[in-house]
Amino acid sequence: MTIMKIGTKLTLRYLFATTLLVVAVFAVLETLLFPRTGYDMLTILNVKLLIIWVLSFTLLFVIGYFMARSVLKPVSKIIKQVEDITASNLSKRVEIDNQNDEIAELAETFNGTLDHLEKSFEAQKMFISNVSHELRTPMAALIAELELSLHKERSNEDYKKVVENALADAHSIEKLSTGLMDLAKASYNAKQISMSSVRLDEVLLDASAMVMKAHGDYNVDLIFGNDTDDYSMVTITGNEYLLRTAFVNLIENNCKFSSDRSSKVQISFSKGKVFVRFSDTGIGISDKDMEHLFEPFYRGENRNFSMGHGIGMALVDRIVKLHKCTITVDSRRGQGTVFTLAFEHI
Score class of each variant (00 low, 15 high):
I3L: 07
F16M: 07
T18N: 13
V28L: 07
V28C: 06
L29M: 12
E30V: 06
T31G: 09
L32M: 06
P35W: 00
R36P: 00
T43R: 10
N46Q: 10
L49E: 09
I52T: 13
V54T: 00
L59F: 07
F61G: 03
I63H: 03
Y65M: 11
V71Q: 10
P74R: 07
T86Q: 09
S88E: 15
N89Q: 11
R93Q: 00
E95A: 00
E102I: 01
E102C: 04
I103W: 02
K119E: 15
N130K: 06
I143D: 14
I143S: 11
E147N: 12
L148D: 15
H151C: 13
R154E: 10
V163K: 10
A166E: 08
A168I: 03
A170R: 11
E174D: 08
T178A: 13
K185S: 10
A186D: 05
N189M: 09
M195K: 01
E202S: 12
E202K: 05
S208D: 09
Y218T: 11
D221Y: 12
N226D: 15
M233Y: 11
I236Y: 04
I236T: 07
T237K: 13
L242G: 02
L243T: 08
T245W: 01
F247G: 05
K264N: 00
F275P: 02
R277Q: 14
T281V: 04
H292M: 08
L293G: 02
F294R: 03
H309E: 09
M313I: 02
H323Y: 12
G336H: 10
F339H: 06
F343T: 00
E344N: 15
H345K: 03
